[in-house]
Design a protein around this nucleic acid. Structure first.
Length: 682
DNA sequence: CGGAATATAAACACGA
DNA sequence: GTCGTGTTTATATTCC
């Protein structure tokens, strides 16, 4: 089936690619083996050694066969799975240097070996073959002229070895599929059977066999390859076979789980495999480099300082290993990419329309390399539409930004698999708290997404309320303003108002961290940051989780306020420009980028997110006026309000002075102003 | 399994 | 009386 064709492809390509070099060595080996005598004694002994080892391998195979209690039939699934492993008939007449193809075929067809056993067997074979090759290299490298009969033998052996190599590749592919399926089982990967994804029919899976280290390795390979795309090395679709090999052969880790040992293969790998391993390592390094800049880990929300790259790599492996957290962050990042791609498409269209309208030369949209790469990586989350809520702006990719049908789906955790989009209930919670990820840094990349997609944000009400209040210039909001923030920021909260409003009120009353302050105009809500962090830190355990705390603790609010002020100042010129203002507002209810940059951690985060956010905000939205509710569809009078910065809001949460400063009637527009004001922040 | 955290629903009070 | 706001209680879910 697909697998078979894929295998053919693999073997063909490996044949053509390594072609001469590996073939020649194999031919050499063949010539050596073809001769039964006539060489030096050392060589003879080497050959004998070979035979001995081959016998051992054969023996091992037989033992394995014997170990199988019900040797004959297993499940039909086994059948399906191992059919691709069958050796082509053309090999049936190979010289029986190793395990004869017939034997191999028999073994395979009897389907009595688990993949692990097969793997072990193949490894043995591979080792033997490698030795053949090596021995011959050492002893017969000077044999240039070979009689025709010998050539035939050599070719036969070469063919045999190629076939064997093919088998190895098949094994690796099977293992890769197993990896993927195991990951999928663990919920790490979502693997919708898409067109680009060969479904694995009847795949028998040994649930065991994947150590966390292996998973991690695989994950590293996967993310590494994608990061490469982001780096500009665009792959036209991800070659599954390549990934297979890299994932299996790059296991330099000497200690691995017993059931499946990949390094055995890598020991005897062909030049091609070797090359692939190197390239895979290279990819990993390159990928890691993109996560490292200015001595700081650029993993979203991390910012850990690493003196050198080595230390960073250590950090990367320890702090950002494959776990739920990293996976979630990866998903978030994918959403970012997805949204960017969508927005880029829209903006491009708009630009062209504008230019067309103004009779300008439709300067062909210069496709900056980055978006293109993004596009390619965006395909990772291509399954988004299938499960995304109807509201999601699914701009189905303009011609300029084609979403390639991905063959890479399996490698990537789906962004929006139903499991990732908490629909109801209490499941959203802990998302931020548990990982202590600053909301702003997490929500930021998805800002556009949540604003337009009817997806419930994976944050608790308390977290959201706090965020809303923190975004306010004076760290205080009326209940109604909080409502507005919710509806403005999340499409999800544009419906079921009664429910979530009740929840908001409930949370405000319930949590000590929310302090109600009487005001001239009424009452406003503020955040007692100390209380909030106290409550939060109670739940946080583990070093990595505490890591992010300092940035949002104590000085955080002050920092936040000052930074916001700084940003506001820089944006003043913009505000003075009605044109820009209008255009920005027209783009619709873009909410303050403070949402991302609002919190200190968000602001101080790596540049990537910053740029991203900025872009995002301006790119957003045009088209979709939020259904039912769009507070920004009208243009409120521009009112630049001086922000009285309460640096110590935590300590004295309220200031009547502050609120008394502004007239009640202006309060109504306050949030809108802030929205617009922040909108123009870059 | 129990407790904590959270979400949801609902009842109730109070003032405009 | 209605509505918005705020408080409180109850219950269910999820996670640790």
């Amino acid at each position: 089936m697909m697998q078979e064709s894929a295998n053919e492809t693999i073997s063909n390509s490996s044949m053509s690619q390594n072609g001469m070099s590996s073939l020649s060595s194999q031919l050499d080996a063949g010539s050596r083996d073809g001769r039964s005598s006539g060489e030096t004694s050392s060589e003879v002994s080497a050959v004998e050694l070979l035979h001995l080892q081959q016998q051992q391998a054969l023996q091992a195979a037989r033992q394995l066969l014997l170990q199988q209690p019900g040797s004959g039939l297993k499940s039909p699934k086994n059948n399906d799975k191992q059919r691709p492993l069958q050796v082509p008939v053309s090999v049936a007449m190979m010289s029986p240097q190793v395990i004869t193809p017939q034997q191999m075929q028999q073994i395979l067809q009897q389907q009595v070996l688990s993949p692990q056993q097969l793997q072990a067997l193949l490894q043995q074979q591979q080792a033997v073959m490698l030795q053949q090759v090596n021995i011959h290299k050492h002893t017969l490298t000077l044999t240039y002229t070979v009689p025709y009969a010998q050539q035939q033998q050599q070719q036969q052996l070469a063919a045999q070895q190629l076939v064997f190599q093919q088998q190895l590749l098949q094994m690796q592919q099977l293992q890769q599929q197993q990896h993927l399926l195991n990951m999928q089982r663990q919920g790490l990967l979502s693997l919708p059977p898409g067109p680009g994804q060969p479904t694995l029919p009847g795949q028998t899976l040994q649930p065991a066999g994947l150590s966390p280290a292996e998973l991690q390795q695989l994950w590293k390979d996967v993310t590494g390859s994608h990061a490469m795309e982001d780096n500009g090395l665009k792959h036209s679709g991800l070659d599954l076979s390549t990934t297979n090999n890299s994932s299996t052969t790059s296991t330099s880790n000497p200690k691995a789980s017993p059931p499946i040992t990949h390094h055995g293969i890598s020991n005897g790998q062909s030049p091609v495999l070797n090359h692939r391993r190197e390239s895979s390592l290279h990819e990993e390094t390159a990928a890691a480099q993109s996560l490292y800049g200015h001595g700081v880990c650029k993993w979203p929300g991390c910012e850990s300082v690493c003196d050198d790259f080595g230390q960073f790599l250590k950090h990367l492996n320890s702090e950002h290993a494959l776990d739920d957290r990293s996976t979630a962050q990866c998903r978030v990042q994918m959403q970012v990419v997805q949204q960017l791609e969508i927005q880029l498409s829209k903006e491009r269209e708009r630009l062209q329309a504008m230019m067309a309208h103004l009779h300008m030369r439709p300067s062909e949209p210069k496709p900056s390399p980055k978006p293109l790469n993004l596009v390619s990586s965006v395909t990772m989350s291509k399954n988004l539409p299938s499960v995304s809520p109807p509201n999601l702006p699914q701009t189905p990719t303009t011609p300029t930004a084609p979403v390639t049908p991905l063959s890479q789906m399996p490698q990537v955790p789906s962004v929006l698999s139903p499991a990732n989009v908490p629909s109801m209930g209490a499941m959203r919670r802990r998302h931020t708290d548990k990982y202590s990820m600053p909301l702003s840094s997490e929500i930021a990349p998805n800002y556009e997404f949540y604003k337009n997609a009817d997806v419930r944000p994976p944050f608790t009400y308390a977290t959201l309320i706090r965020q809303a209040i923190m975004e306010a210039g004076d760290m205080q909001l009326t209940l109604n303003e909080i409502y507005s923030w919710f509806t403005r920021t999340f499409a999800y909260f544009r419906r079921n108002a009664a429910t979530w409003k009740n929840a908001v009120r409930h949370n405000l009353s319930l949590h000590k961290c929310f302090v109600r302050v009487e005001n001239v105009k009424g009452a406003v809500w503020t955040v007692d940051e100390m209380e909030y962090q106290k409550r939060r830190s109670q739940k946080i355990t583990g070093p990595t989780l505490v890591k992010n705390l300092p940035s949002s603790l104590g000085y955080g609010a002050a920092l936040n306020a000052s930074l916001q002020a700084a940003l506001a100042e820089t944006s003043l010129p913009l505000l003075g420009n009605p044109g820009l203002m209008n255009s920005a507002s027209c783009m619709m209810g873009a909410s303050p980028p403070c949402l991302m940059s609002g919190s200190p951690t968000g602001l101080l985060q790596g540049t990537t997110h910053e740029d991203l956010n900025g872009t995002l905000d301006h790119l957003d939205t045009n088209g979709h006026s939020s259904p039912g509710y769009s507070p920004h569809t009208h243009l409120p009078p521009i009112h630049v309000k001086e922000e009285p910065l309460n640096m110590d809001d935590e300590d004295c949460p309220m200031s009547l002075v502050t609120t008394a400063n502004h007239s009640p009637e202006l309060d109504e527009d306050r949030e809108l102003e802030e929205g617009n004001l922040s909108e123009d922040l870059e």
